[in-house]
Design a protein around this nucleic acid. Structure first.
Length: 273
DNA sequence: GTCCAGGCATGCA
DNA sequence: TGCATGCATGGA
């Protein structure tokens, strides 16, 4: 990968296996919006980003070199060799066809807090509504980044709200979960930094202790927010997919179950039902 | 009107 | 341990 930086623009040449639409709009992150010019805008780690691919396949990031190095490079998981991982995953026939069709899905490295809250909201919900709730949450209670964008609100900010405030955003019965989670993170009863240092088993136990977090939400948070790429979240779509694997997951998924999962999830939403 | 969505807590056997 | 039920909301 070659990095070129001009003022407020970073150009990446030679990045393999990164399709922006597939990666930013596949149900792992909920804040990315497609612009009229085909680029994508979003926010993470308190920073705004606009990103697009030009006709040469180069990635054009509207950001500073410093923010690229400290935030976006890791956010897009650029140090991981997805081309090589995909070759291995393609030993499985179904995943092979999904990778051929949807090549370029990456797992984003999101903030633990944002991922955890987002997937608490996601339960028994659909992606369109999830995005709406999270947008209203950020626009109303997140710190302003620029004229249009707000950061994902901190636990401290959300702990000042009431259950009714979350319900007013459309969160429904999940409001009470978000309220308690925000209170416990803000007060230190739950320490996400400590959880991030744990091994998978301990981290999963810690997340499952949280009110409103079950095995599915825990696995999504671990995969998308705590960088456990071997997690394999199973929701209603993935339950349908699992019917294709009566003997369990194939050996070639080993260590990269989360990536295989995201291809299968996308395929299921487009092909099953 | 009914069904469903990146499920979970609760009560009960 | 496993299973049934209720739960907020809006789009299909």
């Amino acid at each position: 990968m070659i990095i070129e930086a001009k003022e407020n623009t970073v150009i990446l040449k030679g990045v393999k296996c990164l399709d922006l639409a597939l990666t930013l709009d596949c149900g792992q992150a909920f804040r990315w919006e497609k612009e009229k010019d085909g680029s994508w805008s979003g926010a993470a780690f308190g920073k705004f980003l606009n990103i697009r691919k030009n006709e040469n396949g180069d990635l054009i990031l509207k950001t500073t070199l410093n923010d690229f190095n400290t935030v976006w490079s890791h956010y897009f998981d650029l140090d991981r060799d997805y081309a090589e991982i995909c070759e291995k995953l393609k030993e499985d026939r179904l995943v092979s066809s999904t990778i051929d069709e949807y090549y370029g899905i990456r797992i984003l490295n999101q903030e633990p807090w944002e991922a955890l809250v987002s997937f608490v909201i996601s339960q028994q919900n659909n992606i369109k509504r999830i995005k709406g709730i999270i947008k209203r949450l950020c626009d109303t209670y997140g710190e302003k980044i620029n004229n249009e964008w707000h950061a994902f609100p901190s636990a401290e900010a959300l702990s000042r709200l009431t259950v009714e405030d979350f319900e007013a955003l459309g969160a429904g019965y999940r409001g009470k979960y978000i309220k308690k989670l925000a209170d416990d993170v803000a007060s230190g009863v739950i320490n996400l930094d400590e959880i991030k240092k744990m091994n998978l088993e301990d981290a999963k136990k810690a997340l499952l202790d949280i009110y409103g977090v079950g095995i599915k939400v825990a696995n999504c948070a671990l995969l998308f927010g705590f960088q456990f790429i071997e997690c394999f979240p199973v929701d209603v779509w993935m339950k349908r997919v699992l019917a294709f694997y009566p003997n369990g997951l194939p050996e070639c998924f080993k260590g990269y179950e989360g990536i295989a999962q995201q291809y299968l999830f996308h395929w299921a939403r487009n092909n099953l039902k």
